[in-house]
């Protein structure tokens, strides 16, 4: 006989039922270039792939289930553009959101984010993927290499070229 379950919230990572986790996955998808209008469809695809991963041997070795969902999201984002158009309005969407409501963040941070958003659109899909995993999901390089099944050197190379491109824009913004 099942007991009456307690009312204490034991919220944690599960099949993307946690709102924070959902937002995190949507963020990785957007950073990876999925258009905002497609985020919910892409989110469903992430869930699908999470379920499919059950049929595969346990190959993955990073720290948290939430991070694993983000890794899958980064893969979905990288593949999204093969059959669909990629997002080309990230900067404009951010600017529109911040115009439509009172600013919650310092102007300096918003300017920086807008500059990076604009520059993100010029990166390749694979560069965006490693940027999202390194700077948003906060995975170390070795874990990114592990989950993407590529050499660490390749991750570093993609990161270096991506960061260089992003920094160049940041510096331009800073001296305006």
């Amino acid at each position: 006989m099942p007991r009456q379950r307690s009312t204490k919230a034991q919220r944690g990572a599960s099949l993307l039922t946690d709102q924070q986790e959902v937002e995190r996955v949507r963020a990785v998808l957007a950073l990876g270039g999925v258009p905002w209008d497609d985020l919910d469809d892409a989110l469903q695809e992430v869930r699908l792939k999470l379920l499919q991963s059950r049929s595969k041997p346990a190959l993955e070795t990073i720290r948290s289930p939430g991070a694993w969902a983000s890794v899958i999201a980064s893969r979905v984002a990288a593949d999204w553009h093969r059959s669909r158009k990629r997002d080309i309005g990230l900067r404009e969407r951010l600017a529109a959101r911040w115009t439509a409501r009172p600013p919650e963040h310092p102007q300096e941070d918003r300017d920086l984010a807008l500059a990076v958003a604009e520059r993100l659109e010029l990166l390749t899909d694979l560069q965006r993927q490693v940027v999202a995993l390194r700077f948003y999901v906060d995975l170390p390089v070795r874990d990114i290499a592990l989950v993407l099944e590529i050499p660490e050197g390749t991750v570093k190379s993609r990161l270096n070229s991506a960061v260089a491109a992003l920094r160049s824009r940041m510096k331009v913004e800073e001296i305006r």
Binding site: V25, A27, L29, A30, H105, L112, A113, F135
Partner: peptide, 10 residues
């Protein structure tokens, strides 16, 4: 910056 973009997208 990336986290701010992510927060908005999320």
């Amino acid at each position: 910056a990336v986290n701010l973009i992510g927060k908005e997208a999320g």
